[in-house]
Design a protein around this nucleic acid. Sequence first.
DNA 1: CTCATTGCAAATAATTTGCATGTAA
DNA 2: TTACATGCAAATTATTTGCAATGAG
Lengths: 164, 164
Amino acid sequence: MATKMEHPTDNRHAQASLEHFRQLLHAHMAKKGLRSTDQRRLIIETFFQAPNHVSIEELLAQVRTQDPRVGYATVYRTLKLLTECGVAFERRFGDGLTRYELADEAHHHDHLICIECGEITEFEEPRIEDLQEEVAAQYGFELKSHKHEMYGVCPKCRKKPRRN
Amino acid sequence: MATKMEHPTDNRHAQASLEHFRQLLHAHMAKKGLRSTDQRRLIIETFFQAPNHVSIEELLAQVRTQDPRVGYATVYRTLKLLTECGVAFERRFGDGLTRYELADEAHHHDHLICIECGEITEFEEPRIEDLQEEVAAQYGFELKSHKHEMYGVCPKCRKKPRRN
DNA sequence: CTCATTGCAAATAATTTGCATGTAA
DNA sequence: TTACATGCAAATTATTTGCAATGAG
């Protein structure tokens, strides 16, 4: 059961898996009567290609390399749209800003965060996932998603003399 | 190893365990030359007695029943102090505000959050804790703390007709 | 006495919103 | 054409900070 092994730091997703998200989005937009605009398409494609855990600011900077006229508000509104239709997850780590990532349940991962240098490492551990289902069932919860962050000192920072 | 069983919703901590936190705080304040004031003592004791996951606003409201003159800034500053010396943890769930809880590692728990009604249930699962250590070790991390939140639909909300 | 602390108000920072204008469908 | 979308700037919200007055050690 616990045999799948992939590069845990390979953040980007195959084109194939993006197709699913494009469909989700399309369905949502059709149902709500929303429109496909240049800015939305650009922001969405940029998000799909961006590294994981992008902030609005990072995403906007990247978007503006293609179209400098795009404003903050549009990025916020588009990411909210992606969140609403289940394409993106909002995440808040310690720094005061929201980051976004693809809602890729099939390729689910959790995070190891270094409290010294802030480096974020992804991990997958199917045995933990199984236990989560077990716990949720104990409490009668129907599990939809989860967030599992472990904070510690990464190998690099452990080598440095510790601060006091 | 996995035999301890307690009321998972019993949030408050025995007086005995608070003693440890008082000492931590006292040591930190002594080392930094900080002073013990009426406001600080009141805020800290209120925090110790408050339900888990208090927000600044809730805490201030409670504090003001004892002393209406206390201001927001003092509560923020005091909670930051508690966080710095390891007495409290900052937590950010989905709503845009920071909540605080006792940094009680010995009585560690994680959270099950209902996405319908917002109810927060605590759980403990030693087998997950063990696996966390294992994963951290795989990556060479020295684990300091973690945050594990599971989102789903609680038993009560599952009974209600689902919204669309 | 000295310097940390407080309350207030003003300052920040991230995010949201109102509105006139632009533009998919 | 008919709303939805955009960009801008102003508004909001949570949190932080400057400062004069207060108070702990």
